[in-house]
Structures are given as structure tokens and as C-alpha cells.
Amino acid sequence: MVNACRPLSLEEALVMRSREATTVFAGGSDLMVRYRQWSGVTPDFSGTVLFVGHLPELQRLDREKDTWKIGAACTITQILQAQGIPDHLKLPLLSMASPSIRNVATLGGNICNASPAGDTLPMLYALDARLTLQSRDNARTVAIADFITGPGKTILAADEILTEITIPPGDWPRVYYKKAGTRRANSISKVTFYAVARFDGDRIADIRMAFGAAAPTVVRNPAAEALLQNIDKNQVPAWLETLTTHYADALRPIDDLRSTGKYRQQTALRILAHFLRRELA
């Protein structure tokens, strides 16, 4: 027997969550497909479904100084249309799914799904996004890289809800995003690459790079990024081989019905090389 609960406040939701096993339902673009049955038959969720998409506490979308705080139930469309939202946050969202999906899919949902191909994840990893996990009696903040532990796996406890995504301040004059998918729109990523960089004159002051759909979780390699720190951007090509080795070891893509591991690996490295050679300089 399926139960459903539509709480009026986050607090009520957290109480619910502390009492019984629940499936948190934000936008539903993934869950409604996962539990669908035959047309005309109500999707087969087991246990209690806890609707949180409407909760005002999860709808925040604002900037505190230069830190972006995004409520977990903000839809992709809401984020794209938010006042002053910077390009480095917009880019991966623009090519995600289709308009009608972007209208229901939430940022929190994309994170908690923890799909290796989740389109927002490389960006969130690269920007060191932090996640607020709240339970009835507690709140904790974790780095996204610590939150997702494997395909579909997170450290979210049974009594917790992901409430907010915090994007630390960062001015990123250079933003690069490349997605290879099954077609040009409304497609699931075969491999993605997201990078941002900041310069001090010609020197790289900070650089972040992340790969999606190329391993069980997003691949980011701080050691490799550190190698580029303070390097003159025109010297970057000299580091290409070293960096490629770093990443080649970290990428662990799989064969599936949408692509091959070989394609994902090679394409990821080709995009990396292109970014370092052409886009960064």
C-alpha cells in the first residue's frame, strides 16, 4: 500500500522522515519513470512518498555576497531564470534534457539520483559545492564529492533531506563545458567535461576540471589541478602528457547501451587536451 505525504513545512517533512522509511519526491522526473507501470496504472512506489517540491524552505535561490545558495527543490528552469545567475552555473543546465523536463527536474534531485551521467554534477564538483543535509534534530554540511559514493549511492541518511546547495564564491572568467550525448537535445550524456579557470595576468590562479559519465562518480583530480596552479597559461601544453596520465588512470568508464567505455575514455581525454591546448591559452 502506497502512502503519500505532502507536508506543509520542512519541519513537518523532517518529522515524517524521522518516523518512517520514505522516498523523497522533489520534481519526479526520474522517480516517475523508475516506478512507472502500465499506462493507466499508478506508479508502483513502495513505502511512503514524501513530496517536498513545493516546500518554500527548499525554494530559496539567492546570493549572499558571492555565495550562491540554491534550494534543493529549485527546478533547472528556475535556476536558469534566476536574476544574476552567472554563466558558469548556467552552461551545463542549458543543454540538459528538454524544456518540459527542466521545468520539473530539480537540482537536488539530480544530485540525490547520483547518476554517473547526472548533468549538473561535474559543475558542482568543480565548484566545490557543499550540500546541507538536514534531519529533525540536526544539520550537517558536506562536500558533494563526499556525498555521492557510487552510482545511485549517497550518504544521505534515512531521516535526512538535502535542503540546500551552496556554491562558494568564485569569479570564473573562463568557463568551458562539453557534452557528448546520444543526440543534440534531450539526451543522456555519454561523457561530459566541465572546467573553470581564473588568471592572474597570464598565470593560472585557479583551475578546476571535472568529468561526468566517465567513472562511477564524477572525476576530479585536485593533484592534477594543483600542477597547473601558477603556471603560465601558454606553458600548459607542456604539461599535457603528465595531466593526461593523471586523468587516464582516474577515468573508469563503462560499456553500456548508449556508448562504449573506450569511446568515453578517449573522448574525455581528447576534450581535456583540447581544453588545455586551445581553450585555456
Binding site: S98, T182, R183, R184, A185, N186, S187, I188, L257, R258
Partner: peptide
């Protein structure tokens, strides 16, 4: 057949 839905069997969209 490995591809058995419109997610995995990709027919052209308006932008292709």
C-alpha cells in the same frame, strides 16, 4: 534489443 525506449533509442528532435 538493448535500446527499448525513447531515452535510449534516439530519434531526431527539432534541433538535430
Amino acid at each position: 534489443l538493448r535500446q527499448n525506449n525513447f531515452t535510449n533509442y534516439a530519434i531526431p528532435t527539432a534541433v538535430d
